[in-house]
Write a protein that binds this DNA or RNA. Structure first.
Length: 453
DNA sequence: ATAATGTTTCCTGTTT
DNA sequence: GAAACAGGAAACATTA
């Protein structure tokens, strides 16, 4: 919050309501300041995010400026966006609220939360306009001259470069007439490759004192490089975001199926699918699904109430005779869950195993590929893999098979009554096409390699 | 926000 | 008797 000691531009992450509350609180604190909340153009976050995720991400950024003090301050946190030379003291009287995703790149590393909006997202318009409305002369017409705002410098046209230049120098409080814009009718990539001396050389104006021109050139040069640095920072923050995504991390679990390799939306079970290396990921740590604090002792995992071999102990058997658990899943027995963008269904999971030589035929194999019949070689291993993928170490084949049986209804899976541990993909099941079921060809090729080498 | 769908965790009973 | 199977019930998670 603004304090009496220094001038501040304050950026906070908050909901719109919270931002309004803060504004009101600030108004009470500082009666000399008039603040305003401007409405902003709301826009939905990308559809790729789940509803819950969208709600979570729909927070706002509030920018509060204490205009009771002089604007320019070298120590203010937004130095990246403020000129390095003293500008004309534009009056800052706005309190603007806009989407978080817009401002996180505008204000660089001010937020630890990564941005998810692309550079050209319309929210930027708001954010940029907020910024510009705060620091530029209000008289400047900015009808269709804002294209440069939505482009990276490299993509600027000559007009964009000039528009940026006009905006920049006016931001710094200089008069348009003091700048020889005609010298800067160059494309963005050319502008960015200019050295400081080049900018100065082009900035020389017959009617303007050379010292002033030098100062303007320095400022323009620094502004340009601030923007270029911001572009780099923004790109690296996107990369960091991708790297930090727990569901893209390769370092948290031993072996799971890549959830993103299959489009959950397109779960028609008829679409073409060819497995590749990306369908399986190798991870290194499986310790993240430990004790569930929300699990009551009554509903603890089977391992708690049964022996380690799965058999019931005598005491537990007696207790069970006295107290019969009501049918159904106990309330609150849900394990610790992790939000994930999408998941693989049980039939898809089975199909993926069957089409992967790491698991087929060692733990699951085709019984009759032409009919889609397959057999569990090590049912518990398959269930464990499934549990591992779902970060549920309590998964058993019993539970897993129950999930499978639910797919009988839609004919995604079909039971094979005559044989145990044999199931079949139904006509609505996933595509399991392969010309090498159980990887027999690969094995025989390998064998011949060994024989003849 | 909500409905639909999918999954998990129980259970009872049956079959192999 | 054990393991697998079938499916009801309810809670929970995810997706549309």
């Amino acid at each position: 919050m603004p304090n009496s000691g220094m001038n501040r531009v304050i950026l906070i992450s908050a909901t719109h309501v919270a931002a309004t509350i803060i504004r009101n609180a600030f108004c009470k604190q500082n009666s000399t300041t008039t603040l305003r909340v401007d409405s902003h153009k709301a826009r939905s976050p990308p559809a790729a995010h789940s509803a819950a995720s969208r709600r979570q991400r729909c927070t706002y950024v509030a920018t509060m400026i204490d205009y009771a003090r002089p604007l320019y301050d070298q120590n203010m946190p937004c130095e990246l966006y403020f000129p390095s030379t003293s500008p004309a003291p534009a009056r800052l009287d706005d309190f603007q609220v806009f989407k978080k995703g817009t401002a996180s790149h505008i204000y660089g590393n001010y937020y630890s939360t990564p941005t998810y909006d692309s550079y050209a997202e319309p929210e930027i318009d708001n954010a940029m306009n907020v910024y510009h409305s705060l620091v530029t002369c209000r008289e400047y017409p900015r009808d269709n001259r804002d294209d440069w705002k939505y482009k990276v410098v490299d993509a600027w046209t000559e007009d964009d470069t000039v528009s940026w230049m006009i905006d920049t120098v006016q931001c710094m409080g200089y008069c348009e007439n003091e700048i020889p814009f005609y010298n800067f009718r160059v494309k963005g990539f050319e502008m960015r490759s200019m050295k400081r001396e080049d900018v100065l050389h082009r900035m020389v104006h017959p009617n303007i004192d050379q010292n002033i021109s030098r100062r303007i050139a320095d400022s323009v040069f620094e502004k340009l490089h601030s923007r270029l640095n911001e572009e780099i920072l923004r790109q690296s923050s996107i990369i960091r975001y991708a790297e930090c995504d727990p569901y893209h991390s390769h370092e948290s679990v031993n072996t799971v199926l890549d959830l993103d390799s299959l489009d959950h939306k397109n779960r028609s079970y008829g679409s073409d699918y060819t497995p590749n290396d990306s369908t399986l990921l190798h991870q290194t740590d499986s310790s993240d699904d430990q004790e569930d604090p929300f699990r009551s002792s009554e509903t603890a995992s089977p391992e708690c109430s049964y022996g380690s071999d799965g058999s019931k102990s005598g005491d537990e058997e007696d207790k069970r005779k006295i107290f019969k658990r009501p049918p159904g899943r106990p309330k609150g027995s849900g394990r610790k869950t992790f939000k994930r963008p999408r998941s693989v269904s049980v039939p898809e999971f089975l199909r993926n195993l069957l089409l992967d030589s790491k698991y087929c035929p060692s733990i699951i194999k085709w019984e009759d590929h032409s009919q889609g019949k397959f057999r569990f070689v090590k049912p518990d291993e398959v269930a464990k893999l499934w549990g591992h993928m779902k970060q549920n170490e309590n998964m058993t084949f019993e539970k897993f098979s129950r999930a499978m049986r639910y797919h009988y209804r839609q004919a995604v899976l079909v039971s094979v009554p005559t044989a145990r541990l044999v199931y079949q993909f139904g006509h609505k099941g996933p595509d399991f096409k392969t010309d090498n079921p159980n990887f027999v060809k690969v094995k025989s090729e390998n064998l011949s390699d060994i024989t003849y080498s």
